[in-house]
């Protein structure tokens, strides 16, 4: 059971690690890392779906009866990866600005700071 679908289990585990990091860490940089992990787990999910057992890379060849893996999810996930990179970059840029404005990258500290505004 586990080993049959171990790729999906890895997706789930990675996702949990990512979400847990977002939830539990108050350091904004760590939060961003958690978020990236969460997104990456979804990339893996897509890539896993495209794989067909025994299938080769989807490159046109002249050999008959070749089984190809489905290339579409892989293409899709390229887009998602770009989005993920953009999100991470934007998030990190915001963290830099937050550090400048609040003097901290710790969310708890910033929130207690805000209350005193």
């Amino acid at each position: 059971m586990f080993f049959d679908h171990f790729n999906y289990w890895i997706v789930v585990i990675l996702m949990m690690i990512g979400l847990y990091t977002v939830m539990s860490r108050s350091n904004l940089v760590k939060k961003m890392i958690g978020l990236s992990l969460f997104q990456i787990s979804v990339f893996l999910l897509y890539i896993s779906m495209g794989k067909i057992e025994g299938g080769t890379a989807p490159i046109v060849s002249n050999a008959p009866d070749v089984i190809y893996s489905n290339p579409l999810p892989h293409v899709l996930i390229l887009t998602a990866i770009v989005v993920g990179v953009a999100t991470t970059a934007l998030g990190l840029a915001l963290i830099v600005r937050i550090k400048e404005a609040f003097g901290s990258v710790d969310e708890e500290e910033i929130l207690s700071n805000e209350d005193n505004l």
Partner: peptide, 19 residues
């Protein structure tokens, strides 16, 4: 103002609620 329903909560807390 500033009570449970309208407080600015930490994003971690928000994510827990979502989950």
């Amino acid at each position: 103002e500033g009570q449970a329903m309208s407080r600015t909560v930490s994003s971690g807390y928000a994510v827990s609620v979502i989950l």
